[in-house]
Design a protein around this nucleic acid. Structure first.
Lengths: 135, 135
DNA sequence: GCTATAAAAGATAAAAACGATCTTAAAGGT
DNA sequence: ACCTTTAAGATCGTTTTTATCTTTTATAGC
């Protein structure tokens, strides 16, 4: 239960590698893929998601590549994970405003809520900068 | 990310229903399935897993059915979830003694460890008795 | 403008996991 | 013997995951 997928692993390793390069330096997806040991085309998709969320900037054409969208110290692990895996949500119940279709009978609901908030809190407290530092 | 599957939902609803019946009373899987709004044959598999873990006792033949394997107050939500979904493990890294195949480079590892222990702690602190009480 | 480069976008596809059903076997009561 | 009820295993369709390939778009350099 609760396993991070390959996609999530690649995403984390990829953005950490990018954060370890000189800030502002253009980095090719091919280089990131090699460093992160991820399939290049797959990682490209992941970085497209990152770009949409503003976690990275992308530049096409000669001399193009990726740079971080903001300082690594202001990108949290949660953002990275949610960018590719969707919101952290241990139970479908938590969808659409927390209204469980089973009504008040759902006594488990508050427990999942607690799990969710704890996990979110932990992942939000870790920045990519911290993860990249311990090279 | 981190979603509980149908199987997990059925499992929880099923065992809660069982816990709400008279202790020791034999309850048919068909009855539990109806109450839990779960496919009977699917729920039967789930209860087989429960039986193997000792969470329930099963009795075959006429007058057979299921009873709780121990008092509901001594069955935790974690046990129920893990019985059907496997161990709570946010990242493959945590497998085989925590040895990450990427070596010391894996700075994310301690974070997952923390997530895991927090979730385990929350789910372990909730008993089926509590969940069943608030009928 | 042309060309080479590099990401974006979309189509496709194999493999695994999920969700569910069906059949046969085994056990227990009458 | 016969009926009931769970156990176990085979099967099967759907969805998700993981990955690749192709086409398009943007950009820099000539």
């Amino acid at each position: 239960m609760m396993e991070l997928t390959r996609k999530g692993e690649y995403a984390i390793r990829g953005i950490i590698y990018l954060a370890q390069q000189q800030p502002g330096k253009m980095v090719l997806i091919s280089e990131i893929a090699e460093a992160a040991e991820a399939p290049q085309t797959f990682l490209a998709k992941i970085f497209q998601s990152f770009a949409k969320m503003g976690l990275v900037n992308s530049y096409r054409g000669t001399g193009g590549g990726f740079t971080l969208g903001r300082p690594a110290a202001r990108i949290t692990l949660r953002e990275v994970v949610e960018a590719v895996e969707g919101p952290i949500m241990p139970n479908r119940c938590l969808l659409d405003g927390g209204a469980c279709d089973r009504g008040e009978g759902c006594t488990v609901h508050p427990v999942w809520r607690k799990v969710q908030s704890q996990v979110v809190q932990i992942l939000d407290s870790v920045t990519i900068e911290e993860l990249a530092r311990a090279k």
